[in-house]
């Protein structure tokens, strides 16, 4: 169980592990994302392009919600980029694990693009147990399976909204909120994360009543910074 006979075997092993709970859970989030997009008349082609290019559920939700709220494109891009900053420590810690000498650099850039929390968390644990030449195939098998599942879920979510009555659609649209309520609740033991979540959750709706298009940006930067200074300094 610690190793595989070939790169191909490592790829498919990553794909098999991913095809269980990790991809199903992420796909549920994307089902909700697609329902939200469809209900807000955000076009399917744009939703699908965002799955392949942005490939980050929080970023995509912010993009769809802010553009439906009529925010200026520049503010949307800045808000999406600020939530994506969290990828930097993830790629910084992960890429050295899969870096092989004499391999083209674009493979690392592709791996970085495929990285999301769902594949980073299990792969950063599993991959160091493998010989270095099997790590990248294992990760790519895992990540590409996530991707395929989420593209399928986006298509399904989009068409489900069309084929169900309004009452069911409300449930589908609520899925993206439920998904993050559950995911964020898991951070209850991490003081700094919990403080940031509470600051953001209080500031977000309040600021929305004042300035809908700036609310996420100000609540995120302000709430996160307040939480950092209150809890990082004194409780580190």
């Amino acid at each position: 169980m610690t190793s595989y006979p070939s790169r191909r075997a490592a790829f498919w092993s990553g794909a098999r592990v991913s095809a269980g709970a990790p991809s199903a859970v992420l796909a549920a989030g994307y089902l909700g994302f697609a329902a939200l997009a469809k209900a807000g008349q955000f076009p399917l082609w744009a939703a699908l392009i965002s799955v392949t290019t942005v490939w980050s559920l929080p970023g995509q939700l912010i993009m769809v919600e802010m553009s439906l709220a009529g925010a200026a494109p520049l503010i949307i891009v800045v808000a999406v980029s600020l939530t994506a900053m969290r990828f930097l420590p993830m790629t910084v810690s992960f890429l050295p694990l899969v870096r092989e000498p004499h391999r083209p650099a674009w493979q690392l850039y592709f791996a970085a693009h495929a990285l999301v929390m769902t594949n980073w968390a299990p792969c950063v644990r599993r991959v160091p147990e493998l010989p270095v030449e099997l790590r990248m195939p294992y990760f790519l098998g895992f990540a590409i399976t996530n991707w395929v599942a989420c593209i399928a879920a986006t298509l399904v979510g989009y068409f489900l909204v069309d084929s169900f009555p309004p009452l069911v659609n409300r449930g589908l649209v609520l899925i993206s909120s439920l998904y993050f309520v559950l995911v964020l609740s898991g951070e209850y033991s991490n003081r700094l994360a919990l403080a940031s979540i509470l600051c953001g959750a209080v500031a977000g709706p309040l600021l929305y009543t004042v300035t809908p298009q700036w609310s996420i940006l100000i609540a995120g930067l302000g709430g996160g910074t307040v939480a950092y200074f209150l809890f990082r300094r004194h409780h580190a």
Binding site: P58, L82, A193, G223
Partner: peptide, 20 residues
Amino acid sequence: FAWIGCVAYAMVASLIARMV
């Protein structure tokens, strides 16, 4: 990176709280 994590959490939480 700790600060970046705080901003990311706050931003997602602000959006979700608002959506609910």
